[in-house]
Every structure is written in structure tokens, then in C-alpha cells.
């Protein structure tokens, strides 16, 4: 198979294989744990018999590969769980039940997803605008004082942990200046205006950190393009500097920016966990931290898999976009 369709198909198959491998690794790593899950779930005061009972109830006595097989079955076809007296049907894609609340992990994630998506999507718009804008500006003002200031600021941005920026922003804007109330999540469907106002600070904190990398990248790739022959030809024809930088050199930064954006989805989700915890947004990140603290393995494994899925998907989409944006890329 050749051509663009073949390339997309190969990528799709590769992505599916990667996801399956990730699920095996994650499952084995987490369920072959040295800690005693039944003991932790049962609590510190449980007797050995009670611990044993919990282990049986959670099917912890089955061999690991069998449990993984059941997990996969649940993912594809759904599964029935008996929770004491009643039977709960967990429809596909089923990631299991929470040890703590008996709630379905899929539902749990589904309920929290809008918050996290609001956060990351909004922040992404901001960091692309801020980052690429700063990069263009500093490539345009290259060698001047303003460029040195911008370079310094972006370097400082890469060096600041997201929760430090968030803390400072929250204290200054909400605490001291009282420009905004302390953020509280309002669903987009309830009140779009309040949604945006409340997410403004979380967006900013996440975006400021991520934007720095984009600024550096945009500047570097634009400077590289500016040194190329065709730009000199444009100059010789008398094309204005503004148009050269703003249109022709910027085009050279497209493909790398797409690649970096996909690469950064992982780190942005990590940043989102911190942002959610800091601002008290009830998203996936906050739920994950909670699940980690109470050792709720099905939730932890489910969340890790869903996040891994998003990251791998983002990379696959970026590969395709990259090929579209930069015709020089050889499709393999």
C-alpha cells in the first residue's frame, strides 16, 4: 500500500498495537504490586479473614493473566459485577468498578471529563496564541533589546512550575486585587460566561508555562527559515519585512509547532492535574490524585489508560497533520 491512505492506515494499526501494549504494561505493573491491595482496601483494622474475603470478592486470587483477560473482555463487551446483593452491569467500554465507591470507572471518568477538557482546550488556544505570537515578535525584533527581554521572559516561563504561577496568580488576582472571585467550576452548558470567567486563571497558569516552549520553538524555526534562499529572493524583489516575517517565515514554523503541540499533550495533562488540584476544579486530575491517595487501583489504572489513549491519539493525529503541513516529509 502506498500514498496518503496507506500511511494513515499503517499509523492507525500502529496506534492500536501501541495502546494494547500500554494496557498490558500498565495492568501488569499495577496489579502485580508488592503492596497488599485487599489489606489497603479493607482498612488497617481488618482481620486476616476479612482481608481474605475482600481479596476473593475482588477476584484478587485469580492469576494475573486471567484477570487481564477479563479486563479486556470488559473493555470490549462489558461485564457484570456482583456487589454484595445486587448485580451491576458495566457496559462496554468497561474499565471496572471503583474499590472505594463501587461506581463504574468509565462513568466516573465520563463525569469528570468535561472539566478537564474545558481546562486543556481553553489553555491550548491561549498557549498557541501567546507562544506563537511571542515567537513571531522575537524573531521580528531579532538582535534588539526587546528580543532579549522576550527571550529572558520565556526562559523564566520554562523554569517556573505551573503550581507556583497558579498560586501567585490566584493570590494576586483573587486575593489582593479582587479582580476575580476564587475559581469555581461552572459547566459550559449552564452558563458560558461564568464558565469562561471562572476558568480564566486556570487557563492562564497552564498556558503561560506551555507557551514558553512554543515561543522558543517558533523563534528558532522562523530564524532558520529567514536564513533560507527563497526569503532572500523575496527581499530582493522588495517584499516588505512585515510580510516576510509574518507570512513567509511563519509558514516554516507550522510543522514544528504541530509536532510540539502533540508532544506536549502529555506534559499539559500533567500540568492540568496540578492546575485542577490547585484551583479545586473537579476534573480527572483531581480524581486521579484522590484515587492515588486511597489506593483505588481500578480508577488509577482506568485513568492512566484513558490519558495514555489521549496522548497516543494526539501523537498519531499530529503525525498525519505534520505530513499535510510539510510536504517534504517522507511517509513511512
Amino acid at each position: 500500500m502506498n500514498g496518503f491512505t496507506g500511511f494513515v492506515l499503517r499509523r492507525t494499526v500502529g496506534t492500536a498495537v501501541t495502546l494494547l501494549a500500554i494496557s498490558v504494561i500498565v495492568y501488569v505493573v499495577f496489579y502485580a504490586t508488592p503492596g497488599n491491595v485487599a489489606q489497603i482496601t479493607c482498612g488497617p483494622r481488618c482481620s486476616p479473614e476479612q482481608v481474605h474475603q475482600v481479596a476473593r470478592q475482588l477476584n484478587l486470587d485469580d492469576p494475573l493473566f486471567l484477570r487481564y483477560w477479563h479486563f479486556l473482555q470488559g473493555l470490549v463487551a462489558g461485564q457484570d459485577y456482583s456487589t454484595g446483593t445486587s448485580v451491576q452491569h458495566c457496559s462496554a467500554p468497561c474499565l471496572g468498578l471503583s474499590y472505594q465507591s463501587d461506581q463504574q470507572v468509565t462513568q466516573l471518568i465520563w463525569a469528570k471529563l468535561p472539566v478537564s477538557l474545558s481546562l486543556v482546550a481553553g489553555a491550548m488556544v491561549l498557549w498557541l496564541l501567546l507562544g506563537v505570537g511571542t515567537g513571531v515578535l522575537s524573531a521580528w525584533r531579532r538582535g534588539r533589546f526587546s528580543e532579549r527581554v522576550l527571550t529572558g521572559v520565556t526562559l523564566a516561563g520554562t523554569a517556573t512550575p505551573v503550581f507556583v504561577i497558579g498560586l501567585v496568580l490566584m493570590i494576586v488576582v483573587c486575593g489582593e486585587l479582587r479582580l476575580l472571585p476564587f475559581p469555581q467550576y461552572v459547566a459550559l452548558t449552564d452558563d458560558p460566561e461564568q464558565w469562561a470567567w471562572n476558568l480564566l486563571l486556570p487557563w492562564l497558569s497552564l498556558a503561560l508555562i506551555e507557551a514558553a516552549a512554543f515561543a522558543r520553538l517558533t523563534r528558532a524555526s522562523m530564524l532558520e527559515t529567514l536564513a533560507e534562499d527563497h526569503i532572500r529572493t523575496f527581499r530582493a524583489y522588495g517584499v516588505g519585512e512585515r510580510s516576510i516575517v509574518g507570512r513567509h517565515a511563519l509558514r516554516g514554523a507550522f510543522a514544528p509547532v504541530i509536532a510540539l503541540n502533540a508532544n506536549n499533550v502529555g506534559s499539559a495533562i500533567g500540568g492540568a492535574v496540578l492546575t485542577e488540584t490547585l484551583f479545586g476544579l473537579p476534573g480527572i486530575g483531581q480524581e486521579l490524585v484522590h484515587a492515588v491517595n486511597v489506593v483505588d487501583l481500578p480508577v488509577v489504572v482506568g485513568m492512566v489508560l484513558v490519558i495514555g489513549f489521549f496522548v497516543v491519539l494526539a501523537n498519531a493525529v499530529a503525525d498525519v497533520l505534520y505530513a499535510v503541513a510539510d510536504r517534504r516529509v517522507v511517509l513511512t
Binding site: 501501541t18 501494549a21 504490586t33 503492596g35 495533562i269 500533567g270 491517595n293 487501583l297 492512566v304 496522548v311
Partner: peptide, 24 residues
Amino acid sequence: SRFTDIIVAMPLMIMSLALLAIVP
């Protein structure tokens, strides 16, 4: 190489956060 690809794909923050849940 494939194993490395998978390791690179997993976000460092999320994985370390999750792993810290299960160690004694």
C-alpha cells in the same frame, strides 16, 4: 525501541503519580 516508544508516550507526571499509589 518499541518499549522505549511506549515509555516516552506515557506522561511522566501521571505515571509517577500513579506508581506512587502502589509502592509500600
